[in-house]
């Protein structure tokens, strides 16, 4: 198989398969959660659920004193990683073209050198998170294979993107193909791992905020 054959494969059928599994899995998981439903709370409400729940979704995006003070390393590295990852994903112009072609929406991108710097910082944060998970006794205790594995897979998507962008591996079709392959791996495992938190975090925060809001507490 030549590098071009490989690129055609990952840009073609493999991408289609990965995208199908991703969408299938995410919807499957979300339906499995939502259909379980929750019992109607019969206690007399002190506050509304909807506004409090919606507020919690946004409030917990903000870094608070509690996390910064008691868990500074995962908090700071976590923010850098998430922000960086989404900047690379959503503001690199080739990615915007992809989203535009699939969904028909588009927005202004960032200059490539900025994305480049962000990608490096993000990879740095991922390495930091990996080392922290490996060396911190608490995180080491809590971590399963999946926790390390996913850090590696996410790192690979960034690293292969960086490699393709800078033509570090030649020929380019091979580098771009590896990037797409790592993204496809991410898409395929996404619905069956904790990566699902990307979606369920909104559900979870809403439930938490709604249940607390009902009792008059903004969580």
């Amino acid at each position: 198989m030549t590098p071009m054959d490989f690129l055609q494969l990952v840009r073609g059928p493999l991408f289609d398969i990965a995208l199908t599994i991703f969408i299938f899995g995410v919807l499957l998981r979300l339906f499995e959660i939502i259909i379980l439903d929750r019992k109607r709370d019969l206690s007399e409400a002190r506050g509304g659920e909807f506004i409090a729940g919606s507020k919690t979704i946004f409030r917990r995006f903000k870094p608070d004193r509690e996390k910064l003070q008691h868990s500074p390393v995962p908090t700071i590295l976590g923010y850098i990683f998430h922000l960086g990852f989404f900047i690379c994903l959503l503001f690199f112009i080739p990615h915007i073209e992809l989203i535009h072609s699939a969904l028909g929406v588009s927005w202004p991108g960032l200059p490539n050198f900025l994305v480049d710097v962000v990608a490096l910082i993000t990879m740095g944060a991922l390495v930091g998170l990996f080392l922290y998970r490996l060396t911190n006794p608490l995180l080491r205790f809590l971590s399963s294979f999946q926790d390390y594995f996913l850090l590696v897979v996410v790192f690979l998507t960034l690293a292969t993107g960086y490699i393709a962008f800078h033509h570090i591996i030649e020929p380019y079709p091979l580098a771009l193909g590896l990037h797409l392959l790592s993204v496809e791996l991410l898409l395929v495992i996404f619905p069956f791992t904790k990566l699902m938190h990307t979606f369920t975090v909104f559900l979870g925060r809403y439930y938490n905020g709604a249940m607390a809001g009902r009792r008059g507490v903004q969580s």
Partner: peptide
Amino acid sequence: DAPLAAFFSSCVHCGI
């Protein structure tokens, strides 16, 4: 119930 399932699906083992 749905909150329980959503919570379990969300945990990323961050230790916070």
